[in-house]
Amino acid sequence: MAAILTIDKLRAGYGPIDALHDVSLTVEAGEIVAMIGANGAGKTSTLMSVSGVLKARAGSIRFQGQDIAKLPAHQIVKLGLAQSPEGRKIFPRLTVLENLQMGAFTRNDAPGIAADIEKAFAMFPILKERRGQAGGLLSGGQQQMLAIARALMARPKLLMLDEPSLGLAPQIVVQIFDVIKDLNKAGMSILLVEQNARMALRVAHRGYVLETGRVTMSDAADKLLVDPRVRAAYLGE
């Protein structure tokens, strides 16, 4: 399998402080890769750097062989890299339908966009029901569905999900993770950031553990699930 995303010795941060120190990570095509770690470990910063919102200070980010570390955010989406961000970041005063249309902002094929909106509605029927409502009026779980559906509207080759289970009821979390598995079965490569390490490592093929801006462990997901250090630090055992 070929690597779709290769991050090599990435350094990035805010103001005078580096949040990431030499983070290296690979996502192979067709894989789900989980990134786990505590609050402030640098998971979100890594995704934001890949998306071009946080500028890389050193290192390289290669997407399908192309170095994207210096590209502006709006060009990165066009290459096929979409993100469902932490906290969902739904446009609160745009309707559900308009939120989805924004996800397809870089595309010009109106019929394709219309077809993908129908696909999104088939995946999450509740969004179809509430298509005319303001995004800010949805419940947390519905907003998470909308955030994922919105990211998919870009027709990404790699989907990045930041904390999709955050603040959601357990049965909704199960539903969201089922969708993640289905997407992957259909061929989507996924980079998944989660604090819910158990859920993440169960669906993922491989996992990385981040601590204070550094990758401290990386292995097959099933191995991480039984690793004593991971169990002690992230699985609460």
Partner: peptide, 9 residues
């Protein structure tokens, strides 16, 4: 931020 993630310049 979300707008940038949508590919909006």
């Amino acid at each position: 931020t979300a707008a940038r993630l949508m590919g909006i310049n």
